[in-house]
Simulated assay, not measured.
Amino acid sequence: MKWLVVLGLVALSECLVRVPLMKVKSMREKLEENGMLKEYLENQAKFLSNDQKKDMTSQSLRNYLDLAYVGLISIGTPPQTFKVMFDTGSADLWVPSFFCITSSCYKHRRFNHKNSSTLKLPPEPISIVKIRYGSGIVMGMLVNDTLKIRDLLNINQAFVLTTWEDQAFGYFVPFDGTLGLAYPDLAKAGGTPVFDNLWKKGLISQNLFAFYLTSKRKRGSMLMLGGVDHSYYHGELRWVPVTKQRFWQVALDSISVNGIVIACYEGCQAILDTGSSVVNGPFEGVLLIQNIIHAQPSLCDKYIIDCKTIAHLPDIVFVIGGVNYPIPARSYIRRVAFGSCVSTFSSFRDRMFSSNTWILGDVFLRLYFSVYDRANNRVGLATAI
């Protein structure tokens, strides 16, 4: 039996494509350093307020304030390289275009359509695609071109060339575009999402992908496409079914501290989000956690903690599929400028999610290697090395 397990792990690791990810300063950190976070949050609150009456079903899971990891792709012939977020919280691929004249686009690498011999523009009249996020809006046109991710060459991939980007995607955003890895039902632009194309065209050997995220080395993090390298985790993968095939959403049994349930009393939902560096949750549950860890409210929605108390604070335990996944204080507390420390638990700023949903960003995913199995609609978790 042991040999069968070993052979299975070897099979999963064969023919996988490794995409290095770079840990970058989040937009929140950059705004804080430049004294602009308060103004940004005020503008974002106005955007969300004005957006209340609009169709929220068109919105993807994304608030770029806390993005922490990005990787490289290339598009076109000859290839043009872009820094993108590989995002389990959305399903579209977009990059800025030379057609885009907003200041947000000028701050990033833009795709020059004239330099690609393989670009296929849509027939006229060209319709504009709008993708709405928690942070703002991008608009553009759906085109097709060759996409390269490491050694994978995906010919005729549909993606959006943006012609307008909200100011939220400006100078302080540490990426050029996004590559969504959520379920196709979440795609808003049309066309087949990237991962689905890789599988349908036989470019990957397994219909799954995995993330290893680390803060120890800037280039140590990894996206694995088409397989799993078991040397990146300890023990065995624990599998849980996806409960709703849009986001990578699973059932969350409870949240506890020192063996006492403090939130999600009767079960709730959790979404695994590679595009966030925090844990988001309902206001009441997050406030209770802040009180337990003695975090005090401060400016710009921050909760300040005495750095000297980190060694004495309890683990926050998320129970998924009957398995405890603790987050220790050294992981959920972040050191910021001037020697202060802040909590990385945050409540939702909008009404996109119900009161029983939590979003587990890289605060959680740095601790637990995660596998996203489209073939069986399940998520696997194991302790990361």
Rank of each mutant, 00 (worst) to 15 (best):
K2G: 15
G8W: 08
L9K: 13
V10K: 09
V10F: 11
L12M: 11
E14P: 08
P20E: 11
M22W: 04
M22T: 13
S26G: 03
N43T: 12
A45K: 10
A45S: 04
Q52T: 15
Q52D: 10
K53H: 10
Q59P: 01
Y69C: 02
L72A: 04
L72M: 12
P78E: 05
P79C: 06
T81L: 05
M85A: 07
M85Y: 14
D87W: 02
T88S: 14
S90L: 00
A91L: 06
I101D: 14
S117C: 09
T118I: 04
P123R: 11
V143S: 04
D145R: 02
N156Y: 13
A158G: 10
E165V: 07
D166C: 03
Q167V: 14
Y171W: 07
Y171C: 15
V173I: 15
D176H: 08
D185T: 13
L186I: 06
A187T: 10
K188M: 15
D196C: 01
G202F: 07
N207R: 15
L208F: 14
F211E: 06
Y212M: 06
R217D: 15
G220L: 04
M222F: 11
L223R: 03
G226R: 02
V228T: 07
S231L: 14
W239A: 11
V240H: 09
V242A: 10
F247C: 06
A251C: 11
L252K: 06
I255S: 01
V257F: 00
V257N: 03
E266G: 12
V279K: 00
N280F: 10
I289V: 07
L299S: 11
I304Y: 12
I304H: 15
I310W: 01
A311M: 08
H312Y: 07
D315L: 05
D315Q: 09
V317L: 06
V317M: 07
V319N: 12
V323I: 12
S340A: 11
C341N: 01
C341V: 02
S347A: 06
D350L: 01
I359P: 12
R366N: 09
L367A: 01
F369C: 06
F369I: 00
Y372P: 00
R378I: 08
T383E: 15
I385V: 13
I385N: 13
